[in-house]
Simulated scan of single mutants.
Amino acid sequence: MEIKFTKREEWFSFYDGKGDQIERKTEVRFDPLTGETSRIIFNPGLTLTPPDYEEAAKMTGGQNCPFCPENILTMTPVFPKNIAKGGRIVQGEAILFPNLFPYSKHNGVVVFSSQHYVKLAEFTAGMIKNAFMAAQLYIQKVVETDTRMKYASINWNYLPHSGGSILHPHLHVIGSESATNYQRQLEDATHLFEQENDRDYWEVLCEVEKKAGERWIGETGEIAWMHSYAPKGHNDFLTVFRNRKSLWDITEKDWGYFARGLQVIFKVLEEQGFSSFNLLFELSLDPKRKQSPHARIIPRFTIGGLDISDINYFQALHQEPLSYHSPEDIANKARSYFNQEKIL
């Protein structure tokens, strides 16, 4: 079983009011692992204006925010002592505690720092590193106390367009006995690939994409950065922790390299007018599986004066991602940023 990059072009021909012919191309791309399709559609040349949350931050911060310093120790819940002796997990400025409204059997929330509103350019490598290290420690603690937990992920909804309900930056860490649809499909497909090739899919993907160069962005330490061939959004940055086969293999140095790479990705998003995103960090807890941890980052936004959602019936009901942008073009843009920053 080889990694294949397959696509199909569809052309729609019609006429304008003057009788001149117009042709529009839709490119259907097949995910090289799962076979799921994504569509690269005509880009009407939209210009995005990032929203300004300065006033909203003044209204929602401080005493009005459960995650701000004056409230966090009194308004957030605590874990039992077998998870955290002091009730919460602290790593640098990052503080992790239970989610009052859990999505899963285990659900921690990580607040990055005391700063209520953090713009993309204001995230420091230390902020990011500490938050993800706290999430890692939480998952490790849960595994020690719940041997039935098989699936875990670290998730980030940044700003309201992404579904973030509180402006104060925070992560969601979830663990469960039941896989999400993404986790189930991923597990089945990577297991089949491993059986047929006796190799980890993500390692092979890194080798293939690096050699091809079209969607390859670069590496920070042993963290590989590329753009997904069949994107799940208008950008879909994919990062793989190479030579790391479980959560326990990831070091503080790795998180530091991940944080520095993420800072550069934020600059790529900002250039395009994106200010909000969803991030998924997926990892295997099965000791029999040796699968590289990986993360995906997609931007979220609204369009025009009516604040039209970037998700419509196609994504929501057909479960078919759309993108205005060519993955190769976005990868080229991101690659130039990585080279400028000299962090490769």
Score class of each variant (00 low, 15 high):
Ala224Leu: 00
Arg184Pro: 08
Met149Tyr: 06
Thr180Cys: 08
Val143Met: 12
Lys150Ser: 10
Tyr138Val: 01
Asn107Thr: 01
Gly175Glu: 07
Gly126Ile: 03
Phe123Met: 03
Gly92Phe: 12
Met226Trp: 02
Val142Thr: 12
His172Ser: 04
Val143Ile: 14
Ala179Trp: 02
Phe132Lys: 01
Asn197Leu: 01
Trp225Lys: 06
His106Met: 04
Tyr117Trp: 03
Thr147Glu: 04
Met226Val: 05
His170Tyr: 09
Lys105Asp: 07
Leu120Pro: 09
Tyr182Ser: 13
His168Trp: 11
Thr147Asn: 03
Glu196Cys: 06
Met226Lys: 00
Leu159His: 12
Tyr151Arg: 04
Thr220Trp: 02
Pro160Ala: 02
Gln185Met: 15
Gln195Ala: 08
Gln136Pro: 00
Thr220His: 12
Phe123Ile: 00
Lys105Gly: 10
Gly175Trp: 07
Met133Trp: 14
Tyr151Ala: 01
Gln195Met: 06
Trp225Gln: 02
His170Gln: 08
Ser176Lys: 07
Ile217Met: 10
Val204Cys: 07
Gln115Glu: 09
Gly92Trp: 13
Lys105Leu: 13
Ala212Thr: 10
Thr147Lys: 08
Pro169Tyr: 10
Phe123Trp: 04
Leu186Asp: 06
Ile128Val: 08
Leu159Asp: 10
Ala179Phe: 11
Gly108Val: 00
Arg148Ser: 11
Ala125Trp: 03
Ser153Trp: 05
Glu187Leu: 07
Gly126Asp: 12
Tyr103Ile: 08
His191Glu: 14
Arg199Leu: 09
His116Tyr: 04
Ile154Thr: 02
Asp188Ser: 15
Gly164Tyr: 07
Thr220Asn: 13
Arg184Cys: 13
